[in-house]
Computed example of a mutant assay.
Amino acid sequence: MSQQKGKFIVIEGLEGAGKSSAIALINDIISQYIGQSPVCTREPGGTPLAEKIRDLVKIADESDPLCDEAECLLIYAARSQLIANVIKPALSSGKWVLGDRHNLSSLAYQGGGRGLMPLVKAVSDACLHGFKPDLTLYLDIDPTLGLSRAASRGKLDRIEQQAIDFFERARKTYLKLAHEDDSIIVIDASQSMEQVHDDIRLQLQRLLPALMGEQ
């Protein structure tokens, strides 16, 4: 009998949406449901080389500002490393993978926020060849509220310091893509953490059996 392939679940959202606490919750739920912990990843990053690329993207260098196109290409370089060396091997061995961001982030941030959608789609097609998560939970929040939450955690990184209209364009793109794809579930992240977590639990109770049935 051939080994059953694992499933790839991703959490997405703007800064301050509560991804970190949501990931911890989802990790626990998946672990209880399938009897083992998922492989957890983050983007950009997730491999030694991809983490070095993450630093290039996240840390501002005033002497050599990162241009938008380079940002996009670096993120896809990191993503390609992660998919090839972590995600696909884990899925092939029957493990589930829980990702903190994936390609939807590039479509929203670099495609919508930066206005580079043609480049993003071209690089995405070239790098991913149709590979995508089985399920994405998008934590939706107004950028003003999200950024105020993010600022309360400490110093903002290069991405978090972008103008508010950048995040408004990214949010608009997230919602448009979610509307077009049944595998993307929208969660209202403006609620209290307890309510957001309750909504996540309800969605996973509904969706996990369907994912298992696909195997």
Rank of each mutant, 00 (worst) to 15 (best):
S20Y: 01
H102K: 05
G112F: 08
I87W: 01
D61N: 14
K52E: 14
G112A: 13
V57P: 05
Y109Q: 09
G112V: 06
L49A: 15
R54A: 04
A90V: 08
V97F: 09
L116A: 05
V39Y: 10
I30E: 00
C67M: 12
S93M: 11
G99S: 15
H102V: 05
T41C: 14
G115Q: 06
Y109A: 02
T47E: 00
I75W: 02
H102C: 09
I87R: 06
E62S: 14
L25Y: 09
I29T: 01
Q81A: 14
A50S: 12
L73A: 03
E43H: 06
L104N: 05
S20C: 08
G115I: 06
D68F: 08
K52D: 09
G99L: 03
I23P: 01
D55G: 12
M117E: 12
E62A: 13
V39K: 07
D64W: 01
S20H: 03
L73S: 02
I83K: 08
T47K: 05
D64G: 00
C40M: 14
D28R: 08
V86S: 12
Q110I: 07
G111I: 05
Q32P: 01
L104K: 01
L73N: 07
L91M: 10
A22C: 13
V39T: 05
A50H: 04
E71Y: 05
C72P: 00
V39S: 03
S20N: 09
K95Q: 15
Y76W: 13
K88Q: 14
D55C: 02
A78W: 02
R79L: 10
A60P: 01
S37G: 06
Y76R: 07
A22P: 06
G94M: 06
K52W: 13
A60Y: 14
L116E: 02
S21W: 00
E71A: 00
Q110S: 11
S93F: 00
P118V: 04
N27Y: 14
A77H: 06
V57R: 06
R79M: 08
Y109K: 04
D64I: 10
P38E: 04
S80R: 12
G35W: 02
E69T: 13
Q81M: 12
S80P: 01
L56H: 09
S37M: 10
N103E: 15
L74Y: 05
K95M: 14
T41V: 15
I87M: 06
L66A: 01
G46S: 10
R114P: 09
S105E: 12
D64N: 14
A22V: 00
D61Q: 14
P48M: 07
A60Q: 15
A22I: 00
I23W: 05
D28E: 15
G46P: 04
L104F: 13
G45C: 07
E51T: 05
K95E: 13
N85F: 10
S37P: 11
D100M: 15
L116Q: 10
P44T: 00
P44R: 07
L66Q: 07
I34L: 09
T47N: 03
K95H: 15
G111Q: 07
R42F: 14
N85P: 04
G112S: 11
G113M: 04
G112P: 11
V97Y: 04
S105Y: 11
A90L: 09
N85C: 13
H102P: 02
A77G: 14
S92C: 07
A60R: 02
A108W: 07
L104G: 05
S92T: 13
P65Y: 12
R54N: 04
Y109I: 04
